[in-house]
Design a protein around this nucleic acid. Sequence first.
DNA 1: GTCTATAAGAGGATAGAC
DNA 2: GTCTATCCTCTTATAGAC
Lengths: 197, 197
Amino acid sequence: MTSSPQRGHAARELLLSAAQELYAAHGVAATTPRQVIELSGVGQGSLYHHFPSKVDLAAEALHRTTTQTLGAASEILGTGLPARGRIESYLRKDRDATAGCRVGRLTADPVVMSHDDLREPVGDYFTDLIQLVAAAFMDDGTPPDGAVNRATAAVAVIQGGFVLSRATGDAGQMQRAVEGFIALMTDGESSPAGPIN
Amino acid sequence: MTSSPQRGHAARELLLSAAQELYAAHGVAATTPRQVIELSGVGQGSLYHHFPSKVDLAAEALHRTTTQTLGAASEILGTGLPARGRIESYLRKDRDATAGCRVGRLTADPVVMSHDDLREPVGDYFTDLIQLVAAAFMDDGTPPDGAVNRATAAVAVIQGGFVLSRATGDAGQMQRAVEGFIALMTDGESSPAGPIN
DNA sequence: GTCTATAAGAGGATAGAC
DNA sequence: GTCTATCCTCTTATAGAC
């Protein structure tokens, strides 16, 4: 109810949507109010009527992005399929690797990192995501501590895959990182006593 | 010979050193010529005497940073120790995790990504680094294709560890990602037939 | 609520003396 | 080679009409 588009708020929605798109492509610091205005099609003053400053616009736009992105991950990781298959589905999920992660890239954004209101949703996103993956590892029989470590590694591999793909302009980097990680998971699959830590 | 500090080039060296430090902390886009001048202690005109533009300064400073960072990795990965130990040493190497990777963070920098002269050394750095790690995996008995995939995953885990640590302000994220990755490598260590792909 | 016009300041680069 | 002074543009934000 609070965030659904309603009459009299068309400009606000257009601004947030445009901001999300521009932040995904260029980050927050490199996105100017003018760009947001031009992409959304609203006037200069409308932005500052709805949002006191650029940071206030970014805070709401980023909150939407992290919520949406976490929801997508949750759909894949929360199915009733076998835990191991859920983890591999998440790892192999189709991604625009050379574009970079729209959340992860914000950790190098000076505007995001210098405002707690912007940094916090980014940190919470990753904390929550790691918990989702860790739950799947536990469902697969890994004890809690080992599951958290492996889940952190899995999320890190995806984030690193984005960095490598973007640096080289080669989406194959993400693919190789993911397959290398899955190969290591598979190597230990039928060990005598199963995962230990 | 070409790059060693010499008489008459004091300002040039001071500028490059200051730029490297500022780029590591804030990135290229967010670093202004004025900041470089103030940190280096030289005058406004000296910067533009030695470097035609901000991008020219960045190109040389980034080349130095990638060369130095790759050299440090090479020292750890190129010793005569057992291959498996070299890989673990590289993964567990002491890092300022919450500061982010001084090379990897540049993949989210709009100035770097929009100039081929700046983007290329970043891509080459990762290509070379993955090859160094892949060589170690091959020394450890992994066939070439599997070694490249595992090496890409290893480098990605470190890059992702930086992203997670920076996002949450918690260096423990890097540690957990590394230990989770090593745990997966260890799980498959004494499998009946050894690594397959 | 939405628009146009405009102002204060920082970023990037140049001019020209020394 | 190095410096100070200056210029132009863009970013961010405000003013005030509609």
